[in-house]
Amino acid sequence: MLNEALKQKVSELLPTTAFDEGGEWLNINIEATDWPAFAQHLRNDGSLFFDYLFCLTCVDWKTHLTMVYHLSSTKHRHNMVIKIKLDRDKPEIETASGIWRTAEFHEREVFEMFGVNFINHPDLRLLILPDGWEGKNPLRKDFEDPVNMIKL
């Protein structure tokens, strides 16, 4: 499905969506509260069928955090990027691990690196960082580590 058709389909599903068409793929901005139901639609709708979550990450914009989901369909071979703005002080979003199993690991990574709390995640613990790093979020822009970081 082409970007135009995707756009039409998505605006039928979620009329409030804001689109952003700078890049190669269709970018859509949605609210965190819409995410669980919308994700179910994306995965299960026959004409969308986004079954492959190939990248899940977060970006710290200093004023807010943005969750970025890169989705692809192995049936229709179309791609889409979903962005969800989160509050920087209390970032919370529903987990996608029930829909795409790969999200379980990626969300754990985002949890420790950005401090995003994934609601209903089956196993939200530190994955990469050792014990004692709870609450410190190294990939946030204001993270300081005088010992290990070398400023150029």
């Binding site: 190669e24 793929w25 890169h70």
Partner: peptide, 16 residues
Amino acid sequence: EFYQRAETARGELGVY
């Protein structure tokens, strides 16, 4: 924002 995929020996590498 720029995203590029490539097929490494282990699978799909994405650079975002």
